[in-house]
């Protein structure tokens, strides 16, 4: 029994530490500095409970894409969105994103998209898993007066990425603004 404990305890501790390390791999506190100079910020943090609750309310409202969204977020642990808008160009520098990029240069993450044009860029990173699935997705998009970071934590099929970038009944940002104001004529 004691021998078993000797074997099991380090394994359990190792698994716990691995889980904690995965979460620490992407620390959004590295973006705090960006928020200090931003004219407006949008922070959305959805943990697993809130994701399920939101999906349940989509179903309750009879949303036709509720099932697709539910299956997409089924294995997700969290979604984090940080969007910063600045009044003028030059109010943030690449150095403000350096800490985040260095986290994403860790071996487990692979940069699948790195598109740069003029002074705009988009980078998409996948956290790889041994079972052929993804353990997370990170997006960093920069414009002279805008920085957006999205981190999706949890298991995703490669096919889910196509769903995420497709329409799937998700209203456009301007539609969301209208819904917030109470005009729900679009039915979503």
């Amino acid at each position: 029994m004691k021998a078993m404990r000797k074997i099991l305890l380090p394994v359990v501790a190792g698994l716990c530490l691995a889980g904690a390390a995965a979460a620490e791999d992407f620390d959004l506190k590295a973006l705090d500095k960006l928020g200090e100079h931003a004219a407006s910020t949008a922070n959305v943090t959805l943990n697993a409970d809130v994701l399920r609750l939101g999906a349940a309310f989509l179903s309750a409202d009879g949303d036709s894409d509720a099932e697709a969204i539910k299956s997409l977020i089924g294995k997700l642990k969290a979604i984090y969105v940080r969007a910063y808008k600045f009044d003028r160009a030059g109010q943030y520098s690449d150095a403000d994103l350096a800490a985040l990029r260095s986290m994403l240069s860790a071996q487990k993450w692979i940069a699948v998209v790195d598109a740069r044009e003029h002074d705009e860029s988009s980078q998409i990173y996948f956290l790889t898993k041994s079972n052929g699935k993804l353990g997370g997705v990170a997006v960093i998009a920069t414009e002279p007066k805008k920085v957006t970071v999205v981190y999706i934590d949890g298991e995703l099929d490669p096919g889910d990425i196509a769903k995420l970038s497709g329409n799937m009944g998700i209203p456009e940002i301007h539609d969301l603004d209208r819904i917030r104001k109470g005009d729900n004529k679009s039915g979503k």
């Binding site: 994701l51 998009a141 970038s165 497709g166 209203p171 969301l176 979503k188």
Partner: peptide
């Protein structure tokens, strides 16, 4: 929660499309 989920998914989609 629904509103925030839709917002998060909409921003994600926008970034992927961009």
């Amino acid at each position: 929660a629904k509103q925030e989920l839709l917002t998060a998914l909409a921003i994600t989609r926008q970034q992927f499309q961009q």
